[in-house]
Amino acid sequence: MEERILKVMRAVFDDTTIGEACSQSNCEAWDSLHHLVLISDLEDEFHVEFEPEEIAQMQDFKTVKEVIQSKL
């Protein structure tokens, strides 16, 4: 699951070095538009839907993972 998330993140941010420490504050590419694309791609990857409140929370790898886990 971690790998699947990272795979999506690496594709969206176009950066193969992205790891589990990635967050909005340390990743330049993670702006509001890429956030939107990330959310949309994660929804497709895991066949889940995120609520707007969750989308706002998902600002780093850790919360992204937690929110997805809560849905599976």
């Binding site: 939107l36 694309v37 949309s40 706002a56």
Partner: peptide
């Protein structure tokens, strides 16, 4: 509509 309300996207981003 979810993506519209959170980011003013009229066209569904899934159609990108």
């Amino acid at each position: 509509w979810k993506f519209y309300f959170i980011s003013q996207m009229v066209l569904n981003p899934k159609l990108a």
